[in-house]
Amino acid sequence: MTLRLKYLVTAAVAALALLGGASSSIAQTTSPVLRSWMSPDIADAWTQGYKGQKTTITIVDDFTSSSKFTGNLGTGSLLYRHGEWTRLEASMIAPLATIKSQSFYSGTTVPLAAGLNVLNLSYGMYARGTYSLSQLGWSAQESSIINYAKNGRAVIVKAAGNDGIAIGSVNAAGNKDFLNLALVGAPSALFVGALTRNGTVANPASLASYSNKAGTNTAVQSHFLVVGVESSKTGLAGTSFAAPIISGYASILGSKFTTATPTQITNQLLNTARKDTLLNYNAATYGMGEASLSRALAPLTIR
């Protein structure tokens, strides 16, 4: 299994204004048909005809670079940019959601649409681990994203990262993902790790070896979800491709609970995540557990 990660060093300088040092940025990575890489949960959504309408998913990613790679999400082998892949994936989960794209090179404020907004961030903002968060100056783009997460104005879905470490830790290159750190404690932020496949009770799944884990920080654990990334079926691996699945789930939830706030959507996904489909579940690895769309849509009680 090959990780389809691209180091976008040039993007980093533009995207992250670091006080007193250089920085680097890492990109982590429609017709409605249930694909083999998808959870069967999704099928029910289509059966009922609701697929994320009246919600907007904004993909902040790479849509302009010359870097492309091959994958197959069930629509045939394609050579796409990173952002084109994540956008396609989210649109396949929630086919009727309005999908917007913003190049993460732009550095401009991410606009919000009417209704529920979900922002998919399949990238990280890396700088030397010796810096602290307070030493960083964010671009208008990341500032707007962080504020949306802190103020509960949009569901912010952040790929956990592919260093196989706990969120907030220093990776092997001595860098930290400061976008992760900036989102810790934000009420409508979700960190998404990758399982090797979709888990079941009979056949529980484990965290992909590359995937970052929740770690011991309870503020991260309580906002950390995992979902299957079936790279053997798609040729696409990395938490970059876990995040769009959760973005799609959030969108579908928003089309059912039309008055729910982004924070309520976030909490519903967290509170209904499953632990019994994971191998040797523990919060430090899996956070709140494997996202379950069917349980997120179901009532607590019915009588």
Binding site: K256, F257, A260, Q264, N267, P299, L300, I302, R303
Partner: peptide
């Protein structure tokens, strides 16, 4: 009909 309790996200609704 039933009374479904969706908790924080949806409250109690007739469904």
């Amino acid at each position: 009909t039933c009374e479904g309790d969706y908790g924080e996200i949806g409250g109690v609704q007739t469904v």
